[in-house]
Design a binder for these strands. Structure first.
Lengths: 247, 247
DNA sequence: TAAGATATCGCAAAATATTGCATTCTTAAT
DNA sequence: ATTAAGAATGCAATATTTTGCGATATCTTA
């Protein structure tokens, strides 16, 4: 595995869990502790992470409460706003998890009607608290440090529902590999979400475009909308127009 | 767990409760008293907290409102503490929702092992975030203004599980009417929780004792433990001793 | 003042970091 | 193809940090 790949994975892990332990990275990446440490040193020198004894933290770690969503918030809010334009009263929606989805949940207007299925407790709470939407949370095992429900139970429940539109975040999207992710359990859930939805909207910050991971969620043909923080006409998005509507 | 994580949790606890006790942090974080003390010393050196004999205080008491609410929290914490004494490693637990239950969740030590089923997303997130317990969230409709999952889906899932012990909050308890509540959906969930549990622990603040509501959840015979903020010997509790263990 | 709880100190064990060096892998020039 | 320079990696020895424990001191409360 290349150095760059490793560092990318490390950054992903950190943005996902807000922290990493050196020895866990060691087994995850299949390299020695020394290499992990050298990677962490480099990332710290680049100002991307905060190194501490035993591992590393997200730079946003010390910002009180709900750290992660601060620096990229602008971009994510722009995406969430676009997502809102696809939503109409009375629709039945389905969402995955992730920070963008929580932003989306926060924007849902108080008087929206309809039904929202979700695998994310954070999304569920946010929407149920503030809006008149009927919120249904899908059951499952809540993995530590992850904020979505996974496991056979979720997949089986998803197989029983059919919704108008689903919203998915992603960790990788490209013309060749399609929608990709790295956590097996999460991929299973995403596949089930797609199967349960008539139309599929993918939300992705521009930085994830043209990146790939090991596991494929679906090919681009399956997707109906792509929402990014770029303008729809941006040339980075040109190649995607043949597959789905870029918003 | 990383040092920085511990310190962050300590700060959160302080901002939540205005104070922390060293020995409580000890079990909460799963480390020795010395380590807790050293963490507190460091935080004090950074000027973030005020260390005192036995624990630490918030430095800026910048929450000028509702001493009453804080006091109520004290009572609930006392109950949650008692609940913790019923929990052992390896147990399979099941909880309802409510503010006391969230307090309970916050106190679960980081190194507890076992499985926790819950209908409360707040409890699930709290426990999954911090501890090594296997957390399973039961699906259902999330009622606005309530933070627990309800509905046929939850009841049906509850019928498939069997746990060692469940914890339930309540809105009314009395010798005549038993455990009572006013929301039909919530009552259905509570009944299912009780049926799924070998033993039943009810948590109630003293103020709810001897109050009744329209719908019965169960009779007092079904209950195994009652946890209140009163001392077990308090004379308000005398009449309950014949039904279950008062803690 | 006595008893119990809490704090401090010194120390040893465990975990983690650092350093220097040998080996392997890339890359580019011959 | 071959080779040599340079980077990346793993390993072993050593240093540093973190942690828990016991003995002792100090504080709190009755």
């Amino acid at each position: 595995m290349l150095q760059e790949e490793r560092q990318k994975i490390i950054l992903e892990q950190i943005s996902l869990h807000h922290k990493v332990l050196s020895n866990e990275l060691c087994t995850l990446l299949g390299v020695s502790l020394d290499t992990v440490r050298r990677d962490l040193m480099e990332l710290e020198k680049e100002g991307k992470i905060l190194k501490v004894h035993g591992g590393a933290l997200a730079k946003t770690f010390h910002q009180p409460f709900q750290q992660a969503a601060v620096y990229a918030k602008e971009e994510k809010m722009r995406i969430a706003e676009k997502a809102l334009s696809l939503v109409q009263n009375g629709m039945t929606l389905l969402t995955g998890g992730g920070t963008i989805m929580v932003e989306f949940a926060k924007m849902i207007p108080a008087d929206l009607t309809g039904t929202l299925f979700t695998v994310s407790p954070l999304v569920a709470l946010e929407v149920a608290q503030r809006s008149s939407v009927n919120v249904i949370l899908l059951a499952g095992q809540l993995a530590p440090n992850s904020y979505i429900c996974t496991g056979a139970s979720v997949v089986s429940q998803l197989s029983e529902i059919h919704v108008d539109l689903c919203f998915l975040g992603t960790n990788g999207i490209s013309a060749e590999a399609g929608l990709t992710d790295y956590d097996w359990e999460i991929v299973q859930v995403k596949k089930a979400i797609i199967k349960a939805s008539r139309r599929v909207a993918v939300m992705s910050i521009a930085e994830k475009l043209e990146t790939n991971h090991k596991l494929q969620v679906c090919s681009l043909n399956t997707i109906d909308f792509l929402l990014t923080d770029l303008a729809p006409g941006d040339k980075k998005l040109e190649k995607y127009n043949q597959f789905f509507k870029v918003i």
